[in-house]
C-alpha cells in the first residue's frame, strides 16, 4: 500500500533512526559514567591525600611514624654518622641501586621520609635494628640500611620514598 512512499522516505528515516540512536547512546554514557565515578575516593578522602607535617620537633637520632593515605610513614632525623654511613656505601653493593641523594631532598639530607611497609610483603620494619644500622623486618628478615635501602633478605626493593617536598625549612608536604 505504502511501498512507494516508503522508498522516497527511506533516507530520511534512516537518518532519523541513526540520529536518535546516537543521541540515546550519548545519554546512556552520560548516565553511566557518574554511576561508576562515584566509586572513586570521595572528597573527604581526597582532602587527606596531601598532608603537611612539621618535622621541627623531631630530635636528631629520633624517628616518628605518621599516617598518610592510610599508610604509616617513617620520618627520621638522621645523625651525621648515619648520613656518612649511607653515603659511603658503593652502589655495587646494593640490590636496588640508589644513592643517598636520590632518597632525600637537597639541603635536607638529615630527613629521611619513607613509607613504612617492607617491600617484601608489607610488614612494618623495626627501627634502629638489623645488620646495617637501619631497619629490620621481623617477618621475613629483610635488613635495610640508614638510607632505607634493602641490603639483605627477601625484600626486592628499597623502602618507598613518597612524593614530598619541603615548603619551608621544617614543614613537609607529603603527597
Amino acid at each position: 500500500m505504502a511501498t512507494q512512499a516508503e522508498h522516497t522516505t527511506t533516507n530520511r528515516r534512516d537518518f532519523l533512526y541513526v540520529a536518535t540512536g546516537a543521541v540515546g547512546a550519548v545519554g546512556t554514557a552520560a548516565v553511566v559514567w557518574p554511576l561508576i565515578n562515584q566509586l572513586n575516593p570521595d572528597a573527604s578522602t581526597l582532602a587527606l591525600a596531601s598532608i603537611q607535617y612539621d618535622v621541627g620537633p623531631i630530635a636528631e637520632g629520633q624517628s616518628v611514624t605518621i599516617m598518610w593515605r592510610g599508610l604509616p610513614v617513617f620520618v627520621r632525623h638522621r645523625t651525621e654518622a648515619e648520613i656518612a654511613e649511607a653515603k659511603a656505601v658503593p652502589l655495587s653493593d646494593l640490590k636496588d641501586p640508589q644513592t643517598d641523594e636520590e632518597r632525600t631532598k637537597p639541603g635536607h639530607e638529615q630527613w629521611l621520609i619513607m613509607i613504612a611497609n617492607c617491600t617484601h610483603l608489607g610488614c612494618i620494619p623495626v627501627g634502629d635494628a638489623g645488620d646495617f644500622d637501619g631497619w629490620f623486618c621481623p617477618c621475613h628478615g629483610s635488613h635495610y640500611d640508614t638510607a632505607g635501602r634493602i641490603r639483605r633478605g627477601p625484600a626486592p626493593a628499597n623502602l618507598v620514598v613518597p612524593p614530598y617536598e619541603f615548603i619551608s625549612d621544617t614543614l613537609v608536604q607529603i603527597g
Binding site: 557518574p34 570521595d42 572528597a43
Partner: peptide, 25 residues
C-alpha cells in the same frame, strides 16, 4: 548502600556525607 552506614549514631551524617563528599552523590 556503598556509602551509607545503618547505625543510629552515624546514619544521618552518612547520608549527608553522600550528599557532600561522594562524587555525584
Amino acid at each position: 548502600a556503598m556509602h551509607y552506614t545503618p547505625n543510629t549514631a552515624l546514619a544521618f551524617d552518612s547520608v549527608e556525607h553522600i550528599r557532600r563528599n561522594v562524587s555525584g552523590g
